[in-house]
């Protein structure tokens, strides 16, 4: 069963990604590892959320789960 990592607030623009959702088999990898394997440079995403709960980039998504990741927050 797969996990989905949704890229929010501009993160989809990276050259090797160009997509808003990274979908991979749930193999126990952390969010950070999933994004690195998909080509997102380290340091670009720093916040991960499942549902309404912050989980961090070292979270290991469970099968069927969807994680949202955001870039570092800045002034609005």
């Amino acid at each position: 069963m797969k996990v989905r990592v949704r890229l929010l607030n501009g993160l989809h623009v990276y050259e090797r990604l160009k997509r808003r959702v990274v979908e991979v088999e749930a193999d126990g990898s952390t969010v950070r590892e999933i994004l690195a394997s998909a080509g997102l440079p380290r340091g670009q995403a720093c916040i991960a959320v499942v549902g309404d709960t912050a989980v961090g980039m070292d979270y290991r998504p469970r099968p069927g789960e969807e994680v949202c990741v955001y870039p570092p927050n800045d002034g609005g």
């Binding site: 929010l8 607030n9 501009g10 623009v13 720093c46 959320v49 955001y70 870039p71 927050n73 609005g76």
Partner: peptide
């Protein structure tokens, strides 16, 4: 600008795009 993360975020979601990350960071 379309391939720039902060600009793409603003274009996608306006300044409200940061709400999720602020919530996640508890700020």
């Amino acid at each position: 600008f379309k391939d720039n993360v902060p600009s793409a975020g603003l274009r996608d979601s306006g300044t409200a795009g940061i709400i999720g990350s602020l919530q996640a960071a508890a700020i």
